[in-house]
Measured scan of single mutants.
Amino acid sequence: EEKRQVKQVAKEKLLEQSPNSKVQVRRVQKQGNTIRVELELRTNGKKENYTVEVERQGNTWTVKRITRT
């Protein structure tokens, strides 16, 4: 359940930055209360990979860091 929520948060964050792209989740890793989500962003056939680190704060998820990989 929490992985599902985190995927959603990570996707939304990337789509905010580039709204007309397609996002696909590649991998989800958990480390303590930080969850790392690896995503693939496609814009006009151009692929970019991103890693989004999401942290739990109380009962909400906040995006800590977005890295292009």
Results as ranks from 00 to 15, higher is better:
residue 54 V to E: 01
residue 18 S to M: 14
residue 51 T to F: 09
residue 4 R to N: 10
residue 43 T to W: 05
residue 53 E to W: 12
residue 50 Y to W: 13
residue 4 R to G: 06
residue 8 Q to N: 07
residue 39 L to A: 12
residue 45 G to I: 05
residue 55 E to K: 05
residue 59 N to R: 05
residue 12 E to R: 06
residue 40 E to Y: 11
residue 41 L to C: 07
residue 41 L to Q: 05
residue 22 K to I: 11
residue 57 Q to K: 11
residue 6 V to L: 06
residue 39 L to G: 03
residue 43 T to Q: 13
residue 64 K to L: 14
residue 59 N to G: 13
residue 3 K to C: 15
residue 12 E to D: 14
residue 33 N to Q: 11
residue 30 K to C: 08
residue 50 Y to M: 03
residue 38 E to I: 11
residue 48 E to P: 00
residue 67 T to C: 07
residue 45 G to A: 09
residue 14 L to H: 00
residue 59 N to W: 05
residue 9 V to Y: 06
residue 51 T to Q: 10
residue 25 V to D: 00
residue 34 T to E: 05
residue 38 E to Q: 09
residue 10 A to V: 10
residue 32 G to P: 03
residue 42 R to K: 10
residue 40 E to L: 11
residue 67 T to V: 11
residue 21 S to A: 11
residue 37 V to P: 00
residue 2 E to I: 12
residue 66 I to H: 01
residue 46 K to S: 10
residue 10 A to S: 02
residue 65 R to M: 09
residue 33 N to I: 07
residue 13 K to R: 06
residue 45 G to K: 06
residue 48 E to A: 06
residue 49 N to L: 11
residue 24 Q to N: 10
residue 41 L to R: 03
residue 56 R to H: 08
residue 53 E to S: 09
residue 39 L to I: 10
residue 9 V to G: 01
residue 35 I to M: 14
residue 46 K to V: 10
residue 56 R to E: 05
residue 25 V to E: 01
residue 37 V to M: 03
residue 30 K to P: 14
residue 41 L to G: 03
residue 26 R to V: 12
residue 36 R to Q: 12
residue 51 T to N: 04
residue 64 K to N: 10
residue 61 W to L: 11
residue 41 L to F: 02
residue 67 T to W: 13
residue 60 T to E: 14
residue 35 I to C: 09
residue 27 R to I: 06
residue 9 V to R: 02
residue 26 R to Y: 08
residue 4 R to T: 08
residue 58 G to D: 12
residue 67 T to A: 10
residue 55 E to N: 05
residue 11 K to D: 01
residue 5 Q to C: 06
residue 57 Q to W: 12
residue 69 T to M: 14
residue 57 Q to I: 12
residue 21 S to N: 02
residue 53 E to L: 13
residue 36 R to T: 09
residue 45 G to C: 06
residue 59 N to Y: 13
residue 15 L to N: 03
residue 43 T to D: 12
residue 47 K to W: 06
residue 22 K to Q: 13
residue 58 G to N: 11
residue 65 R to S: 14
residue 5 Q to P: 03
residue 33 N to D: 13
residue 62 T to C: 06
residue 51 T to V: 14
residue 38 E to M: 15
residue 34 T to M: 11
residue 46 K to P: 04
residue 37 V to G: 00
residue 16 E to C: 03
residue 3 K to H: 12
residue 53 E to P: 00
residue 45 G to E: 10
residue 66 I to V: 13
residue 14 L to Y: 01
residue 38 E to W: 14
residue 39 L to S: 02
residue 56 R to M: 09
residue 10 A to P: 00
residue 56 R to S: 07
residue 52 V to Q: 00
residue 50 Y to N: 00
residue 64 K to V: 15
residue 31 Q to V: 14
residue 52 V to H: 00
residue 60 T to I: 11
residue 62 T to H: 08
residue 13 K to M: 08
residue 62 T to N: 11
residue 61 W to I: 05
residue 1 E to V: 06
residue 30 K to T: 15
residue 33 N to E: 12
residue 28 V to I: 12
residue 35 I to G: 04
residue 1 E to T: 08
residue 33 N to G: 09
residue 65 R to N: 12
residue 31 Q to H: 13
residue 12 E to V: 03
residue 64 K to G: 08
residue 1 E to Y: 08
residue 30 K to A: 15
residue 2 E to V: 10
residue 63 V to F: 03
residue 15 L to P: 00
residue 67 T to L: 13
residue 60 T to R: 07
residue 66 I to A: 03
residue 27 R to L: 06
residue 43 T to C: 04
residue 25 V to T: 04
residue 59 N to T: 10
residue 64 K to P: 03
residue 4 R to D: 12
residue 55 E to A: 08
residue 1 E to L: 06
residue 25 V to I: 08
residue 28 V to A: 06
residue 32 G to M: 04
residue 49 N to V: 10
residue 10 A to T: 02
residue 3 K to G: 09
residue 58 G to V: 06
residue 68 R to Q: 13
residue 42 R to T: 15
residue 2 E to R: 03
residue 40 E to P: 00
residue 26 R to I: 14
residue 27 R to P: 01
residue 56 R to L: 08
residue 8 Q to W: 04
residue 42 R to Q: 07
residue 62 T to G: 09
residue 39 L to K: 00
residue 35 I to R: 03
residue 33 N to C: 05
residue 19 P to A: 04
residue 23 V to T: 03
residue 63 V to W: 01
residue 17 Q to D: 06
residue 18 S to L: 05
residue 40 E to Q: 10
residue 56 R to A: 07
residue 62 T to D: 08
residue 67 T to D: 08
residue 63 V to T: 03
residue 8 Q to F: 06
residue 43 T to K: 08
residue 26 R to C: 06
residue 38 E to N: 08
residue 58 G to H: 11
residue 37 V to L: 05
residue 47 K to Q: 08
residue 3 K to A: 15
residue 66 I to D: 00
residue 6 V to S: 05
residue 10 A to L: 07
residue 30 K to R: 13
residue 58 G to R: 06
residue 65 R to E: 13
residue 64 K to E: 07
residue 39 L to C: 14
residue 48 E to G: 03
residue 61 W to T: 02
residue 36 R to H: 14
residue 69 T to A: 09
residue 36 R to E: 13
residue 42 R to I: 14
residue 24 Q to R: 15
residue 49 N to W: 13
residue 9 V to D: 02
residue 38 E to H: 14
residue 28 V to H: 02
residue 32 G to Q: 05
residue 63 V to D: 00
residue 41 L to M: 09
residue 13 K to L: 08
residue 44 N to R: 08
residue 37 V to T: 00
residue 25 V to W: 03
residue 42 R to P: 00
residue 11 K to H: 03
residue 14 L to C: 04
residue 69 T to V: 11
residue 61 W to D: 00
residue 64 K to H: 06
residue 23 V to M: 03
residue 21 S to P: 02
residue 9 V to K: 03
residue 35 I to D: 01
residue 1 E to R: 06
residue 15 L to V: 03
residue 41 L to H: 01
residue 19 P to M: 03
residue 52 V to N: 00
residue 15 L to C: 03
residue 43 T to N: 09
residue 9 V to L: 15
residue 52 V to L: 05
residue 69 T to F: 10
residue 26 R to P: 01
residue 42 R to V: 12
residue 38 E to S: 13
residue 42 R to G: 06
residue 14 L to D: 00
residue 24 Q to T: 14
residue 37 V to R: 00
residue 58 G to S: 09
residue 22 K to M: 09
residue 67 T to I: 12
residue 61 W to V: 04
residue 55 E to T: 08
residue 41 L to W: 02
residue 32 G to S: 05
residue 59 N to Q: 12
residue 58 G to P: 03
residue 41 L to E: 02
residue 41 L to S: 10
residue 1 E to Q: 08
residue 3 K to L: 15
residue 63 V to C: 04
residue 20 N to R: 04
residue 7 K to A: 15
residue 37 V to A: 03
residue 21 S to C: 02
residue 57 Q to F: 10
residue 9 V to P: 01
residue 17 Q to G: 07
residue 31 Q to Y: 14
residue 34 T to I: 12
residue 37 V to W: 01
residue 6 V to M: 03
residue 38 E to Y: 15
residue 54 V to Q: 00
residue 12 E to A: 09
residue 51 T to R: 09
residue 44 N to P: 07
residue 5 Q to K: 10
residue 14 L to V: 07
residue 48 E to C: 04
residue 14 L to T: 02
residue 68 R to K: 13
residue 7 K to L: 15
residue 43 T to Y: 06
residue 31 Q to M: 14
residue 50 Y to V: 08
residue 9 V to S: 02
residue 1 E to S: 08
residue 13 K to F: 12
residue 64 K to S: 14
residue 44 N to I: 07
residue 65 R to W: 06
residue 21 S to Q: 02
residue 37 V to D: 00
residue 68 R to H: 08
residue 17 Q to C: 09
residue 53 E to T: 08
residue 55 E to L: 06
residue 50 Y to A: 07
residue 53 E to V: 09
residue 51 T to G: 04
residue 68 R to F: 10
residue 18 S to H: 15
residue 54 V to D: 00
residue 36 R to P: 00
residue 46 K to Y: 12
residue 2 E to F: 06
residue 18 S to P: 01
residue 35 I to F: 15
residue 1 E to F: 04
residue 40 E to S: 08
residue 58 G to E: 13
residue 60 T to P: 01
residue 12 E to G: 03
residue 16 E to V: 03
residue 29 Q to I: 15
residue 36 R to V: 13
residue 57 Q to P: 03
residue 56 R to K: 14
residue 52 V to T: 01
residue 61 W to F: 14
residue 28 V to S: 03
residue 10 A to C: 04
residue 6 V to A: 15
residue 9 V to N: 01
residue 60 T to C: 05
